[in-house]
Design a protein around this nucleic acid. Structure first.
Lengths: 233, 233
DNA sequence: AGTGGTTCAGTGGCCTAGCCAATAGGTCAA
DNA sequence: TTGACCTATTGGCTAGGCCACTGAACCACT
């Protein structure tokens, strides 16, 4: 039974998203500055050819993101964050920015590995070992060890005990996953990757932050080779 | 004339916010897990006593935050981020997590400095110098060089040429700023900080990534000392 | 002048009612 | 077993309307 794990659900465009995008464009295009007011909802509705309810939804979205603040009876005021596109969207939009993902991953995971080496408990080490075992078992069975790979990085992140770094990793996690799957798809890679993970685990166990960071750095860079090659193909 | 700066505009609660909050509570209270479906909009509307339009707005808000994903014809599916409060809020909530900010800043800025050393152009170097000059001038004039400090880090970040890392820095920027101001407030600190910035700039100019990262790391750690002490007071 | 009410037009907040479109799940014939 | 079809359920979006809030203009009073 062939897997189709690379397939993703079709894009279901929401009207409010499109409207929010158009409003954002309008903001940047017209040089609207922080503090300026958007046109009234009713006017936006007629101009963009949608209902006021949809405009309202778009404004909710923009408000949640922090691009505008809507004031009852006054209007929607543009904030200073308005021109800033959302992090993941910005990347996906250009798509050719895999190197940026690598850089970010390197920055975060190297630090995470170092912190993990300082703060790991026995429970964390056990969790990391379990992930490595799962990875090895899967590879022995002919798999690519993707699941164990994910578990490993999750365990290391947990050991680092930083909610902030953890959250940031989660933010780019979706993008990282793609590069990870690509990398492990290459023949011989899984075993090599397993060895790299072992080196990271050893450094963490040895409570050696610098070595852990270096090992993680090397691992991330090794993965990036493939990803970039694949990207350029 | 007594100031009333502690006064804030009255809370103008939005219905959709309240509804979103109730839905979130419902999720955590009922042990709803990732992948489970929320009740239909129509049912939520009658149960919470609001219109479907408002429910829809609340779901837009939750969707933007990433707590749910709404599928046409199917329902609103809870994601694994549902229980996770917003990144900045999470930190602010505990408030005692300054160390985490330092860790994150260190991870990002060290990498940014390294990348800047690799990719800086003459224009970037000029920008960095300008920031240092502004910092020095302000300090000579008795100031703390806060503005120049910000300009410096902004210039280095620009030189790193990574939209992703840049965005991440912006995300924690608000929090970093607080620690920065605290640090520079100590007597003697501004000049010392200026020297540290110069070392970073030199490494970047010399196109030495490792040295740049090390200098930035040292700088961030130096700042953290003060911040943590201040925090413990 | 300055202060405080009043009014009014503009604006967002929220609602009701309804149709359209997508989905999941069943039925039935090939 | 497969594929086509139907149907109930659900979200997407619209239209139209009432209410509450805001800000500016105006006015009366001090």
């Amino acid at each position: 039974m062939a897997r189709l794990e690379s397939l993703r659900p079709v894009q279901r465009p929401r009207l409010y998203e499109q409207v929010a995008g158009q409003i954002t464009e309008w903001i940047t295009a017209n040089g609207v500055r922080s503090g300026d007011r958007l046109p009234p909802e009713r006017e936006l509705a007629t101009q963009l050819g949608v209902s006021r309810a949809t405009i309202s939804q778009a404004l909710v979205a923009l408000e949640v993101v922090g691009a505008v603040v809507v004031r009852h009876g006054d209007g929607a005021i543009v904030t200073d964050l308005a021109g800033t596109p959302r992090i993941v969207d910005a990347i996906r939009a250009h798509a050719k920015r895999l190197p940026e993902i690598i850089d970010a991953r390197d920055a975060l995971e190297s630090k995470i590995a170092a912190l993990a080496a300082e703060r790991r408990t026995e429970a964390h080490l056990a969790e990391i070992d379990a992930a490595l075992d799962a990875m090895e078992a899967d590879i022995d069975a002919g798999g690519r060890g993707v699941e164990g790979d994910e578990l490993f990085h999750a365990a290391v992140t947990a050991a680092a005990a930083s909610e902030l770094l953890s959250k940031m990793m989660r933010e780019i996690g979706e993008l990282v996953l793609e590069t990870r799957i690509e990398s492990l798809g290459q023949p011989g890679r899984p075993r090599e990757s397993l060895a790299a993970h072992r080196r990271i685990a050893d450094a963490i166990r040895a409570a050696d932050p610098a070595a852990a960071a270096a090992a993680m750095h090397a691992h991330v860079m090794r993965v990036s080779d493939v990803a970039i090659l694949h990207d350029g193909a």
